[in-house]
């Protein structure tokens, strides 16, 4: 039974990882070799595809755009999301119940219902097409992160807060020097979760950015896949090279911090 479990798990893991291996190998081959032995090349690997995709899509510019888009969302979530999570967890104020109900509701409203009105408002109404602000606004404060922050502040002992307040510390000071240091692991989990949202997001920045020099990498690579690739010498090689560049930061961060990506942290966020 035990052996069967490990065979299933490791076989499954290899099947799950294979597309990533194939992505990397394909990006390093000068001509696509789709035979079975071609998946395990022994020689002839090259970086030409990376140069090729870079000549068609401005990789550095797109990465900077992705970085600004993601950075803006992270900043909004960490600053305003932590404040809201703290207030929801530890402070009694008018409207708290209503706000918490909204936090729960927002998580079940699918983004596609808001797509058309948000487009009309942000692009047509406020004229924010091809701007970072227009990209960031709909994602500015990640509600799941607010929820996780709240859960973690809620788990801290009451006495801690009573003592700090008794010493005359204001709420911002209690938050900054008492509560935040204690929830640092949660902060990291929420930041990681928030990061993958905008970094990987395609639909919204695709709608907002028409100028190539404003597009995040997910959008410029997608445009390359759907429009340009047919005319390239080794279209798949270039696509896969771009895919590796797009995947690397998120995968790298995830592997580096994978022990923070555990069920107990998220579980408390999901269970409510």
């Amino acid at each position: 039974m035990k052996a069967v479990r490990y065979v299933v798990l490791f076989a499954g893991a290899l099947i799950f990882l294979f597309p990533f291996y194939y992505m990397l190998i394909g990006s390093l081959q000068s001509a696509p070799d789709t035979s079975i032995t071609g998946a395990f090349p022994t020689s002839g690997l090259t970086l030409d595809n990376y140069a090729d995709i870079n000549s068609r899509v401005d990789l550095v510019g797109s990465l900077i755009n992705s970085g600004i888009f993601t950075g803006g969302v992270l900043l909004g979530t960490v600053v305003f999301g932590v404040l809201a999570g703290y207030a929801l967890a530890r402070l009694r104020f008018r409207g708290r119940g209503t706000l918490f109900v909204l936090v729960l509701l927002v998580q079940v409203i699918p983004f596609q219902l808001l797509l058309i009105p948000l487009y009309v408002l942000i692009v047509r109404g406020y004229g924010l097409a091809d701007s970072y602000l227009g990209m960031i606004l709909p994602f500015a404060i990640n509600t799941t992160a607010v929820f996780i922050f709240r859960q973690f502040f809620l788990q801290l002992p009451d006495d801690l807060f009573a003592a700090a307040r008794l010493d005359g510390a204001g709420e911002l000071r209690v938050l900054w020097s008492v509560a935040l240091p204690l929830v640092r692991p949660a902060l990291l989990t929420a930041v990681l979760l928030t990061f993958i949202g905008p970094w990987n997001e395609f639909l919204w920045p695709f709608l907002v950015t028409k100028q190539a020099d404003m597009q995040p990498l997910a959008v410029s690579l997608a445009n390359y896949i759907s429009n340009v690739s047919a005319r390239a010498a080794n279209p798949f090689g270039a696509i896969l090279a771009g895919a590796c560049v797009l995947a690397a930061p998120a995968v790298g961060l995830f592997i580096a911090f994978q022990r923070h990506f555990v069920s107990s942290d998220l579980g408390s966020g999901v269970k409510g």
């Binding site: 499954g12 893991a13 799950f16 992505m23 990987n200 997608a222 896949i225 896969l240 771009g242």
Partner: peptide, 19 residues
């Protein structure tokens, strides 16, 4: 192995599935 497709951009993995 099991989580990595979830954290990777759809656009990137669509590339390899096309291939």
């Amino acid at each position: 192995a099991f989580y990595v497709p979830y954290v990777t951009a759809s656009v990137a993995v669509v590339g390899v599935w096309l291939f």
